[in-house]
Design a protein around this nucleic acid. Structure first.
Lengths: 204, 204
DNA sequence: GTAGAATTTCAATAAATTCTGAAACAACGG
DNA sequence: CCGTTGTTTCAGAATTTATTGAAATTCTAC
């Protein structure tokens, strides 16, 4: 890497101790602020089971509010073309960024959805479908396995069996309610989820 | 390992295609049901950024509703002593399982909290603290960097800067509201969160 | 069509995470 | 004290996940 880059790729400064900006140049400050956000967003994503790079790419598209092409992403995040391509596609599959074609240009650009609530509701819906629903199914199957009709009356009354059945039931109730809340978020996202959430907060 | 174990460790059957139980022996069926739950819970944990084994250990303690010692965990999940010890400690640190001493016994046992709502609220509180709060801080710092007082009036009016400021503001609002909801869950967990959530669902 | 710019794919590799096992440590009864 | 039983720690091994880079493919302007 050259000693000084005109505009360096995402700063390596630790998020917890960001160095004070040494410059008043507005462009650089803007970039520093964006980089800090991108870095932190990537970290958070990582702890929530989302590939750090994917989270960073989305953060970049979101925070700049400007369509980014593959090369923009590669250069800014300092990643390979293949990596950029695969994660951009994954983000498109999720539906939280969109492809953008420009007249007379071969190159494709990507832009983030602008509505945070919509972004969140898409993610929530998908994770519910992929991760909560299968657990609920499993719980139901486990409950069947411990039914009187599977075990017989005597066995079904064993304390061990009763205890497990109760725990399964509690967990099922919890997950059902959680699922419903997710559902509500999702179905309300388009029409002012904002307001809906305020209602919710008053109710609590 | 002996050729046949009286009760085998956690079955390796894929969760998606569990084999039909071949036995009507209630003890084995109970164990099969528990194993299926444990396995699925571990998978879900993994996609949410929680170590699969840690999630499985917790699932084991929860679903059996019976205090488990280190050797129980090792044998049932087929993991090493070190692994069991470290994950049990981590779960204790989170506060979702508890150590249990028995009179005249050296060995320590571990039991899960029984209230699912409490378990969830502990996890939510901790993740909020560790992962949401730092992002909010970062957003605020980024906003400061793009203040008029940092950039000067002219620069602060550049469209690029304005756009980033708006995105930061939207994200901040979203995260603040999410944080408040988390907060509410947590502070209500002890006294019938259940009811609270029902209120919430009506409000939506 | 076709040139060539842009994208996708994927085997190889690198990085990060998780797990093991054995040694060190602690607690207790005698 | 010492022997026994049980727990913790942690360096290295194993496993999983992420990334690269170059070849194959696709697309579009002409």
């Amino acid at each position: 890497m050259p000693a000084t880059l005109p505009v360096s790729p995402l700063s390596e400064t630790a998020v917890d101790h960001p160095q004070e900006p040494r410059t008043r140049d507005p462009d650089q400050l803007l970039r520093l602020a964006q980089d800090e956000f991108i870095r932190r967003w990537g970290e958070m994503g990582a702890t929530w089971g989302i590939n750090r790079t994917m989270a960073e790419i989305h953060a970049l598209c979101y925070i700049t509010a400007t369509p980014q092409c593959t090369d923009d992403v590669m250069q800014r995040l300092n990643i390979s073309r293949g990596n950029a391509s695969m994660n951009l596609r994954a983000l498109c599959d999720w539906g939280i960024i969109r492809r953008l074609h420009r007249r007379g240009e071969r190159r494709e650009y990507f832009e983030s959805l602008s509505d945070v609530w919509e972004i969140f509701s898409i993610i929530a819906a998908e994770r519910k479908r992929r991760e909560m629903d299968p657990v609920l199914e499993t719980i139901k199957r486990c409950q069947q396995m411990l039914d009187e009709s599977s075990l017989g009356k005597a066995a079904a009354r064993q304390p061990q069996v009763q205890a497990t059945r109760e725990r399964l039931a509690n967990m099922e109730e919890f997950m059902s309610v959680t699922n419903k809340i997710f559902q509500q978020f999702v179905s309300n996202a388009r029409s002012g989820l904002n307001r809906v959430v305020k209602v919710l907060l008053k109710a609590l």
